[in-house]
Amino acid sequence: MKIYSLIHQKGGVGKSTLTFNLANNLKNYCKICILDVDYQGSLYEIRESSEIPIYHISQLEEVRNSNYDVVFIDTPPYIFEGLETICDISDHILVPMKPGPLDMLAVKKTIQFIREQNAQHKASIVFNMVKPKLNLTEQIAEVVSTYEIPTTTNSISDLVVFSKSVLTNGVEANNNAQRQLDELTKELLLK
């Protein structure tokens, strides 16, 4: 079993949507599920309409003892008591980050937490909800490159289809969105 956790102590960076889309992108290739440990439970709330099994935080041990090939864990926008365990059991930690000045500052606390767990070797930052043709992304990327956690080569654009994806069970109808997810998924699987 491979476990990918999406962690960031800042809200509004697209953790839940990215978690859903990455899991959805693999649903035809392996046995996959999502564990929603965010107490808001946004993903858990859509479990009835999802083509991917979505479990509640209370089912962590059940999921860990299951025969899923891949588990994606969606975490809350704050550091909570069980996050140390999530870092420990994760094969890879993905830190979604919007390329903005406040996000650049906020991600430092998440990176510090990951370092305190001695998990920086299995973490990466992904630029998510990237505005097209925004020079700021390059400037932010330059600053973030000095942090101790690498950024992914691939990023995810700020496309409406990503936000709608939890209602439509994916982004397959949009070639650009699907290409971005395919590239990021491949990159993660090779880590």
Rank of each mutant, 00 (worst) to 15 (best):
L167A: 14
N135M: 13
L94F: 03
I89R: 10
G100C: 10
I140P: 06
I3F: 05
L136Q: 10
D38K: 02
L136P: 00
A106H: 03
M1A: 12
N175D: 11
I79C: 08
H8Y: 03
R47Y: 00
Y78N: 15
E45F: 12
V70Q: 10
Q180D: 04
E138N: 13
I149L: 09
K133M: 13
C33N: 05
I125A: 10
S16I: 00
K108D: 14
V171E: 03
T19H: 06
L94K: 05
Y78V: 13
E48F: 10
S58C: 08
I32N: 05
R64A: 06
G14S: 07
L60E: 09
L94D: 04
L184N: 03
E84N: 14
P150S: 09
Q112R: 15
K131D: 13
L159E: 08
N169H: 08
K186Q: 11
N21W: 02
N154C: 11
H56V: 00
K122H: 08
V107F: 07
N169L: 11
S66C: 05
P77L: 06
Q178G: 01
C87S: 11
S90N: 09
I46H: 08
I54P: 01
N154H: 15
L18V: 04
G41E: 05
Y147W: 05
N176A: 11
A119K: 09
F72T: 01
E148N: 12
Y68C: 07
I73L: 04
I73W: 02
I46Q: 12
D103A: 12
V166S: 09
N154D: 11
I89W: 08
S58M: 10
A119G: 09
E116D: 15
C87P: 09
K10P: 01
A173W: 04
T185I: 06
R64N: 07
I140L: 14
G41V: 07
R64V: 00
K98H: 05
E142W: 01
Q120R: 04
L6T: 03
Q120D: 12
S42E: 12
K98N: 13
L94T: 07
E138Q: 11
K164G: 01
N24M: 13
Y78K: 14
K186I: 02
Q180N: 03
V143L: 11
E187Q: 09
S66G: 11
Q40T: 03
G14W: 01
K109Y: 07
G41K: 04
I89S: 14
Y55Q: 02
S157D: 15
I114P: 01
S157M: 11
I79L: 15
C87A: 14
M1W: 02
F72P: 02
A106N: 08
P101H: 06
N169F: 08
N65Q: 15
S50N: 13
N154R: 08
L94M: 11
E142M: 09
C30F: 03
N169E: 09
P99Y: 04
A141K: 14
K186E: 07
K108G: 10
F127P: 02
